[in-house]
């Protein structure tokens, strides 16, 4: 029993380490003097701490523009997701209609189609809509992830039907039930969903690379990629940029982690 527990904890720590080491390495590299960045053997503790990379990056590249662009796209994707997924999840969880399960299964199966395959038709759709190089064009596909629908539907399904019946007798129609009962009761799920979509959109690279081709609409991940030249990779600047790019998402997660975890775990548990 005890050995099993140590083994489990050991495994958890190992997994945590796999996640943690690159983050620490990024943070350390961001404050190392340039010669030490590529030195062999690698140095975990820099000989001196310098913040010059941050200054250099901000001077050379429009970092804050990228940050603002990323923020706008992530916020837009999150807002659209919350609105659209609410209605879809309600229809799939609480309304009885023919073919409901077939539609849900099809939507969930879409999760298994790789993003890269979707990107080609998506590109043409967005182009035809005239949304290339716009934040809306970048955000729309991110707001239609099947996983959002799945998360919210599972949460909605577990809300006792009596609550809905009570609201119906009290005088609510479907929209009233959704607004007065389902949404307020599901706030933890919305917290989890919002954070998930925001961070996903914040980190998203591939679709932004395709759909945002002008320099003034670049997002952070793409902007950082411009630090990779043909023969030269500016690791020091890249790490400083990456570190700054990671901070907002990390802070949001740390503040809201309890809601995120409860929202995700409650989605599967009958209360």
């Amino acid at each position: 029993m005890r050995a099993g527990r140590y083994l489990r904890y050991g495994l958890c720590y190992l997994l945590a380490l796999v996640w943690f080491v690159p983050v620490v390495w990024m943070a350390v590299t961001a404050v190392k003097p340039t010669p030490e960045v590529m030195s062999f053997t690698p140095r975990w503790i820099p000989s001196e701490v310098t913040f010059s990379h941050f200054g250099e990056l901000l001077a050379k590249k429009p970092f804050f523009l990228w940050l603002l662009n990323s923020f706008q796209i992530a916020a837009l994707a999150t807002a659209i997701t919350v609105v659209v997924t609410t209605f879809a999840a309600y229809a799939l969880a609480r309304l009885e209609w023919r073919g409901r399960n077939v539609v849900f299964t099809m939507l969930i199966l879409a999760m298994f189609v790789p993003w890269e395959i979707n990107s080609i038709p998506l590109f043409f759709i967005v182009k035809d809509l005239g949304l290339l190089n716009t934040f809306l064009g970048a955000a729309l596909p991110l707001a239609a992830l099947p996983v959002s629908l799945f998360l919210l539907r599972q949460f909605f399904i577990n809300i006792p039907t009596d609550l809905e019946d009570a609201a119906r007798i009290d005088g609510c129609g479907h929209l009233g039930i959704l607004w007065h009962v389902i949404i307020p009761v599901s706030l933890p799920a919305y917290g989890a969903l919002s954070i998930f979509i925001f961070i996903f959109s914040w980190n998203e690279f591939f679709w932004s690379l395709i759909s945002l081709q002008r320099a003034d609409v670049r997002t952070l991940p793409i902007g950082l990629k411009t630090l990779v030249g043909a023969g030269d990779i500016q690791y020091d600047l890249m790490m400083a940029g990456s570190f700054m790019a990671t901070l907002p998402a990390l802070i949001i997660f740390l503040i809201l982690r309890r809601h995120i975890i409860s929202g995700i775990s409650m989605a599967g548990v009958r209360r």
Partner: peptide
Amino acid sequence: AKNRDIAMVFQNYALYPHRTVRDNMAFA
């Protein structure tokens, strides 16, 4: 249901968890 002029008490109470007692009663 809302126009039948009835009121119903459910087995598991069906109180709105996010509203106070006063708001639960005042909702309708």
